[in-house]
């Protein structure tokens, strides 16, 4: 079963990091990603550009509106994700708890809908 691990953290922290700290942080992610590739959990994962680069679209009554910024302003911002394959939620949690941002921000674990296995009754 697939789970999406959404990584929320305070972007501002990035701007206050020294290059050495940022390097060490990146290294932790590389190590983690290698790890979950080895265990077969890894499906995909990306880091996102800061929310300042976000564009939000809405179409209402046939009119497309385009606004600057993320869908919702929050204290912690969506900064990246991993898509993982896990046996069950406990297995997914064991993976997600090792994402470095768990110690500074938060990780949301969401099961992916499997349309092939939807119950028919």
């Amino acid at each position: 079963m697939k789970y999406l691990c959404l990584i929320y953290d305070n972007e501002a922290v990035w701007t206050t990091m020294s290059p050495a700290e940022a390097e060490a942080d990146m290294q932790q992610y590389f190590t983690f990603t290698d790890d979950i590739r080895r265990t077969g959990h890894y499906v995909a994962g990306e880091a996102l550009q800061p929310v300042a680069t976000a564009t939000t679209l809405r179409e209402r009554h046939g009119q497309l509106s385009m606004t600057d910024g993320p869908f919702a302003e929050t204290k912690e911002q969506l900064g990246g994700f991993y898509l993982i394959e896990a046996r069950d939620l406990n297995d997914a949690v064991q993976v997600a708890r090792r994402i470095p941002a768990v110690r500074t921000g938060s990780i949301e674990v969401r099961p992916i809908v499997d349309f092939g296995a939807m119950p028919q009754d």
């Binding site: 939620l89 406990n90 064991q94 099961p111």
Partner: peptide, 14 residues
């Protein structure tokens, strides 16, 4: 069911 919370005893560490 949807998040597949397993029917198992937690691992020792947890």
């Amino acid at each position: 069911r949807q998040a597949r919370i397993p029917y198992e005893l937690p691992e020792f560490g947890a």
